[in-house]
Simulated scan of single mutants.
Amino acid sequence: MKPLLTALERTGQQIFDRPFMKVFLLGLLTTIGAIIISYLGANEIMKNVPGYQSDWQWWEDFINWIMGYVVDVAFFVILFFFFAPISTVFISIYLDDIIDCVEDRFYPDHKAGKRLGVGHLAFLATRLLFYIVILNILVIPLYIFFFWVPFFPLIVFYFLNSYLLGWGYYEMVAVRHLGIKEAGVHRKSIRGVILTAGLVMTILFMVPIVQLVVPILGAAMMCHLFHLSRYNYI
Results as ranks from 00 to 15, higher is better:
residue 3 P to V: 06
residue 5 L to G: 11
residue 5 L to C: 10
residue 8 L to G: 09
residue 11 T to S: 05
residue 11 T to D: 07
residue 12 G to L: 02
residue 12 G to P: 11
residue 12 G to D: 01
residue 14 Q to T: 14
residue 15 I to W: 11
residue 16 F to M: 01
residue 17 D to M: 09
residue 18 R to H: 15
residue 19 P to E: 04
residue 21 M to E: 12
residue 28 L to M: 09
residue 29 L to R: 05
residue 31 T to C: 02
residue 31 T to I: 07
residue 32 I to G: 14
residue 33 G to E: 01
residue 35 I to A: 06
residue 35 I to Q: 02
residue 36 I to W: 02
residue 36 I to T: 07
residue 36 I to N: 10
residue 36 I to C: 10
residue 37 I to V: 15
residue 37 I to L: 15
residue 46 M to P: 03
residue 46 M to F: 15
residue 48 N to T: 13
residue 49 V to S: 05
residue 50 P to G: 00
residue 50 P to W: 01
residue 51 G to Y: 00
residue 52 Y to S: 01
residue 53 Q to T: 15
residue 53 Q to S: 12
residue 54 S to G: 08
residue 54 S to I: 00
residue 57 Q to D: 09
residue 67 M to Q: 00
residue 72 D to I: 04
residue 76 F to C: 03
residue 78 I to V: 14
residue 78 I to H: 02
residue 79 L to K: 10
residue 81 F to R: 00
residue 82 F to T: 08
residue 82 F to W: 10
residue 86 I to V: 06
residue 87 S to H: 01
residue 87 S to P: 06
residue 90 F to S: 10
residue 91 I to K: 12
residue 94 Y to G: 01
residue 95 L to A: 14
residue 96 D to C: 05
residue 96 D to K: 01
residue 96 D to I: 08
residue 97 D to I: 15
residue 98 I to A: 03
residue 103 E to D: 14
residue 103 E to T: 13
residue 105 R to N: 12
residue 107 Y to G: 06
residue 110 H to C: 08
residue 115 R to M: 05
residue 116 L to G: 13
residue 118 V to Y: 10
residue 121 L to N: 09
residue 121 L to Y: 07
residue 123 F to W: 14
residue 124 L to H: 11
residue 125 A to H: 03
residue 125 A to L: 05
residue 128 L to G: 11
residue 128 L to P: 06
residue 130 F to W: 05
residue 132 I to H: 07
residue 133 V to T: 02
residue 137 I to C: 05
residue 137 I to P: 08
residue 140 I to K: 00
residue 142 L to S: 04
residue 142 L to D: 04
residue 143 Y to I: 04
residue 146 F to P: 13
residue 149 V to A: 09
residue 152 F to H: 00
residue 152 F to D: 03
residue 153 P to M: 00
residue 153 P to Y: 12
residue 153 P to G: 12
residue 153 P to T: 09
residue 155 I to D: 02
residue 156 V to N: 02
residue 159 F to L: 07
residue 162 S to A: 09
residue 165 L to Q: 03
residue 169 Y to I: 09
residue 170 Y to Q: 03
residue 170 Y to K: 07
residue 172 M to C: 08
residue 176 R to F: 03
residue 176 R to A: 08
residue 177 H to W: 14
residue 180 I to D: 08
residue 181 K to N: 11
residue 181 K to P: 08
residue 182 E to K: 04
residue 182 E to G: 06
residue 182 E to Y: 11
residue 183 A to F: 11
residue 185 V to M: 08
residue 185 V to I: 14
residue 187 R to W: 12
residue 188 K to S: 14
residue 188 K to F: 15
residue 190 I to E: 04
residue 194 I to T: 04
residue 195 L to N: 09
residue 196 T to E: 02
residue 197 A to E: 01
residue 197 A to M: 04
residue 199 L to R: 01
residue 201 M to N: 06
residue 202 T to R: 04
residue 204 L to E: 08
residue 205 F to Y: 14
residue 207 V to Y: 06
residue 209 I to C: 08
residue 209 I to N: 06
residue 212 L to H: 13
residue 212 L to I: 15
residue 212 L to N: 05
residue 214 V to D: 03
residue 215 P to G: 10
residue 216 I to Q: 03
residue 217 L to C: 06
residue 217 L to P: 11
residue 219 A to G: 15
residue 220 A to E: 07
residue 221 M to V: 15
residue 221 M to Q: 07
residue 223 C to G: 13
residue 225 L to F: 13
residue 230 R to G: 11
residue 231 Y to F: 15
residue 231 Y to E: 15
residue 231 Y to V: 15
residue 232 N to D: 13
